[in-house]
Amino acid sequence: MAQSIRSDHAPRSVPRLSGPGTARERLGTFVRRHKLAPYLLLAPALIGIALVLLWPLAQVAIYSFQNYGLAQITGVLPAQWVGFANFSTTFTDPEFWLSLRNSLLFAIVAVPLTLLVGTIVGLLLNRLGKKMSIFVSTAALLAWATPPVSASVLFYWMFNPDGGIVDWALARMPHWLVGGTDWAGYNWATNGPVQAYTMIAILVVWQAFPFVAVTLLAGLKTIPAELTEAARVDGASPWRVFRRITFPLLKPIYLVLLLLSVIWDFNIFTQSYIIISLGNQNEYNLSMYIYDKAFGFPPSYGLGGALALIFALILLVVTVGYVRASIRQGALT
């Protein structure tokens, strides 16, 4: 009796994968009926993302409500739930608002500048002959392909008060042109947020405009030549052609570039970390502020976790705005 029951159940619980087994067919029917195939195909990727992204994210969220730090890792003090203490500490810290302001102002200046330079170069590339176009875009893409660390070190040298080429050149220019500042030995990195971010803005725009230019070039190639030709025949100026034809047609691309640039420029860490260096707190941007709070000594992963969540929420607002705009334009269909 017992044996017959077992043999009766065996095929159901252990589906045989070979032969004309009914289990395999039943599994297939189950998958088809519930339309599971796409999910099964997605599963490996989802599991991977869950492991490397969602789990750390959950941990950050947990830490953000704890006083989790080095002493909790070494075990000399227990990890305690502290409610919203990490968030209130952050919001009452004037340096948090200062670094948020630095990040925002930087994005407000660097993003339009990147788009402007990118547009100009993109339009230029569209006009150039084939060989020149390849030459210019290759040169520009080399700037884009330079690793941010190398580029930052390069700029750090160029703007160095001890023999940097920028100070050297400025000191040799007439005063009526560059002002009365003592440029020889002028410390761009530590003299204040405006000076430091001027330097970083040049660096970031230099590295980011090629992507904008090349993306726009791809868009420009899709605009039918007849449109611009007809406008020119009707006597439209180049500016009018751009404003009435090129820009409206490329608007979806511009929107994407704008939001990507906002995310990138709001996020910069490598450049500011190398150029400003820790210790000049009035020049911190949000990412440096987070780094200092989370990994300075003694490290506070709780505070860092809270800050990471706040930072993520800010970026989420930008992304939601982008997705909404895209849906309204029908770009997502």
């Binding site: 992204l53 750390p56 994210l57 950050v60 994407v256 990507l260 992304t319």
Partner: peptide
């Protein structure tokens, strides 16, 4: 791409913290 941007930003901070 945009979602990836956010994801990478999040992962960067998240993985760093965690």
């Amino acid at each position: 791409a945009a979602a990836l941007g956010v994801a990478v930003a999040l992962a960067g901070t998240a993985a760093g913290i965690a």
